[in-house]
Design a protein around this nucleic acid. Sequence first.
DNA 1: ACCTGAACACCGTTCAAGT
DNA 2: ACCTGAACACCGTTCAAGT
Lengths: 215, 215
Amino acid sequence: MARAALTRQRVVEAAIGLADATGAEALSMRKLGESLGVEAMSLYNHVRNKEDLLDAMVDAVYAEIPLPDPAGGWRDELRPRYLATREVLLRHRWAIPLMESRAMPGAANLAHHEALLACLRANGFSLTQAAHAYSVLDGYVYGFVLTEKALPFDGDDVAEVAQAMLAQFPVDRFPNLAAMASEHVMQPGYDYGDEFGWGLDLILDGLERARRDAG
Amino acid sequence: MARAALTRQRVVEAAIGLADATGAEALSMRKLGESLGVEAMSLYNHVRNKEDLLDAMVDAVYAEIPLPDPAGGWRDELRPRYLATREVLLRHRWAIPLMESRAMPGAANLAHHEALLACLRANGFSLTQAAHAYSVLDGYVYGFVLTEKALPFDGDDVAEVAQAMLAQFPVDRFPNLAAMASEHVMQPGYDYGDEFGWGLDLILDGLERARRDAG
DNA sequence: ACCTGAACACCGTTCAAGT
DNA sequence: ACCTGAACACCGTTCAAGT
């Protein structure tokens, strides 16, 4: 019994699995072929080249984010959608740096922005206001997850990393960073991810205010 | 006359110039050596490896961003600083995707966050409020520039790209995107970069409100 | 129509050898 | 102390050859 026939979808799914497990740097056509039980060159029957594969991977990530319902209230629709966006992006940590290099948006990306705009406009946002809203919300979620990934606040090794940093950079040169680390970040129960909801609500409040003032 | 002696700083500067000109993907140790009139292997006398070089490049970008003055008003200090951050990141478009993979922050990065926290705390922000402010502002600026780079709204070819997109994805399936393109984005004088200031002011307004309500 | 082996033009990095 | 040439283990991608 041979393995199931290769399809574009199977190739893309395997690539996402490999990137999730080992990071985007470790994703090579040769290793991807191996994980599918096939020579690397066979993949070229299903994707044009590696760029085409990366495009498809990014669009598959967009497809995981639930669409807002234009018939719902804009804030009730958008808030959970952006919380979900953060979770999806954390699940596929390789995706954000890839997004900047994709020239042409994929189908799932377009479907998302269409639904987002439809929801805003159905709730009284003008085109100008909708452009503002889209721009600040999308910017925030991508940047937050990027920052979140880069910060050493992740997981249980906060204390060790903080210690290493403080050892390298003396406390007296960075008193505010030291205070932030010891008196805030390292306090029990602190989770940097909680900052996401705080900033999201700040932005949604601002958008609500702008919508009211103009409408 | 031989070329000036190689130093770590010269290597990092040449690498930044090469990345600015040709993108991060095109930056290889071999090409970097060539641009310095030296074999690739010589570079290893000045940087530990390519990761070390990328760390130094990212920190050099941070060093280009002006520091806020803790003695100034927080909003007067932070607003121009974040406008400048956007400009620096646009000048070095390869930097943002690199930031997520840097585990250990460099000296310029630490100096920035120290000055930022000092300015906020000198202006009455608690540690908790300062963490909120840092998180939402940094997330926003990195994400905005990432989005800005990915969007095809850049330069003079807006019309062509929009046309190509509409050709590929029929207007009747994406009526709101089509309206946004033709009635807003493609209007004379529209500049997506202007959205940055709008969102920045929205966030600063929200932070001011949070500071007042708590203080 | 799909898969493969060999080949090409690249990578980052090591190491012993030069000066 | 710094630079180099050869070498190693990788890349993405092509192309003619197989089935």
